[in-house]
Design a protein around this nucleic acid. Sequence first.
DNA 1: ACCCACACTCTCTTTTTGGTAAGTATAAAT
DNA 2: ATTTATACTTACCAAAAAGAGAGTGTGGGT
Lengths: 138, 138
Amino acid sequence: MTDGSLRQELLGLQANNPAVDRLVEEIIGRVADKWTMLLIEILTEQECCRFGELARACTGISQKMLTQTLRAMERDGLVTRKVYAVVPPKVEYRLTDLGLGLSKAFCGVWLWAEGNLEMIEQARRSYAERQAAEGTSA
Amino acid sequence: MTDGSLRQELLGLQANNPAVDRLVEEIIGRVADKWTMLLIEILTEQECCRFGELARACTGISQKMLTQTLRAMERDGLVTRKVYAVVPPKVEYRLTDLGLGLSKAFCGVWLWAEGNLEMIEQARRSYAERQAAEGTSA
DNA sequence: ACCCACACTCTCTTTTTGGTAAGTATAAAT
DNA sequence: ATTTATACTTACCAAAAAGAGAGTGTGGGT
């Protein structure tokens, strides 16, 4: 248990291929940002959304970021974008199977965060205390 | 299957408490960045690392970002920081149980990314093609 | 004739992020 | 006396990200 066996065991896949690793890191960096995760969650809860619905559901997002994030997700094959040739315009977004798979994968992280909220907050408090203590003694 | 049952089923926890949701989002935003994920991976592979070892293992990171990320991780209770009062200085970092839990949670995302690399790259190619096609016709 | 939807797009400005490089402390080695 | 090693910290600067807000196209309602 002192070596890399845990990750290997958990991953159970190819031995560290540096090229694959780099790609994986790039994809995770791309995909693991706040808005992407939020949009995935929203689209998991309600599978078909229009642009405006997403804007309302995704509190605090700007139009710009919404468009940008959705485009990136479309590019990566996480969502489909269906444009209706009507006026006023109508566009529907929904997760692809790929996107749904990512949603499930993220679920573990959500669970962890939900389950450990208290511990994290406590860690922060005690860190702050330690800092304060150092401040007074130093 | 048309409503939010999937997430509820997968999460199986409290009904959407907005305050909790916001905290969870904040924590995920904090924790799901490139360097944090990389450091967690490194510290999962080798449970005890000195600052310099991390710097070497985490290719491309600057001292500044390394210190910054490690401090944030310490603050959130993901790593412990053990300082030896020697000269030259010696500091050892290792994951806490909380950090190890997050490592496992991230594992699902790594697996997803590794397992779907090909699909993502293909999605990107076909998106690029569609863009190019629109460019010529429009 | 005019305004409203809706889903953007564009420009401009502010904020945040991250890199570089230099500085710090100190004991041991040369 | 000078250098070396280590783990930082600080100051400065460039680049990238994100927000605000106005503009766009068009068919239908008034």
